[in-house]
Amino acid sequence: MNQTFPKKEHLKRKKLIDLLFKQGQKVSAYPLLLFYTQAPLFEEDVVIQAGFSVAKRNHKLAVTRNRLKRLMREVYRKNKLCFQTNELTFAFMFIYTGREEVSYIELEKAMLKLISKFNSKVSAGSDDI
């Protein structure tokens, strides 16, 4: 049961990020929004590469943005094994859409709701992905 988030699981490639926002689908559970797309096989031995973003428009201070991203990464790290990928590789981008800071517990509830919505979408329409 590996609950780490190593560098090889970080979403960094510009081409993949552009593809994600151009062709990807989205699922939301306030205050989180998940953009995802099926990705070509990664060179590394990973199933999901994930990125995290907080809008500067909503959170002016870098300290606040960094804290929210740190919390999102931690919540993802603890719950990433719950994603059902059906042996496919995915690129994820988690975006924090709320205007106020939330606690870890509220963020974890939103992440679990997001995971269940994602899993139901993937299992129901695995041919549309």
Rank of each mutant, 00 (worst) to 15 (best):
M1V: 11
N2V: 10
N2E: 14
T4N: 14
F5R: 02
P6T: 04
K8H: 12
L11W: 04
D18R: 10
D18K: 14
L19N: 13
L19P: 00
F21K: 08
G24C: 02
G24L: 07
Q25F: 15
V27R: 01
S28N: 10
Y30F: 15
P31H: 02
F35D: 03
T37E: 08
Q38V: 12
Q38P: 07
A39W: 10
P40N: 14
L41G: 10
E43C: 04
E44G: 00
D45A: 10
V47D: 11
I48F: 01
A50I: 00
G51S: 06
F52S: 00
F52A: 00
F52I: 02
F52C: 03
S53L: 04
V54M: 05
K56Q: 13
K56E: 09
R57C: 05
H59Y: 08
K60I: 11
L61K: 15
L61M: 11
V63R: 04
T64A: 06
N66P: 00
R67K: 15
R67N: 09
M72H: 04
R73Q: 08
E74C: 00
V75C: 07
Y76I: 01
Y76N: 04
Y76C: 03
R77S: 04
R77K: 12
K78C: 11
K80Q: 15
K80D: 09
F83Q: 07
Q84G: 09
T89P: 05
F90K: 04
F90R: 05
A91M: 07
A91L: 08
F92D: 01
F92P: 00
I95F: 07
T97C: 09
T97I: 13
E100C: 04
V102D: 05
L107K: 04
E108A: 02
E108K: 11
A110H: 01
M111L: 09
M111H: 01
K113A: 14
I115L: 03
S116H: 14
F118K: 01
N119R: 03
K121S: 14
K121G: 09
V122I: 15
G125N: 14
G125E: 14
D127Y: 12
D128H: 12
D128F: 14
I129K: 13
I129F: 14
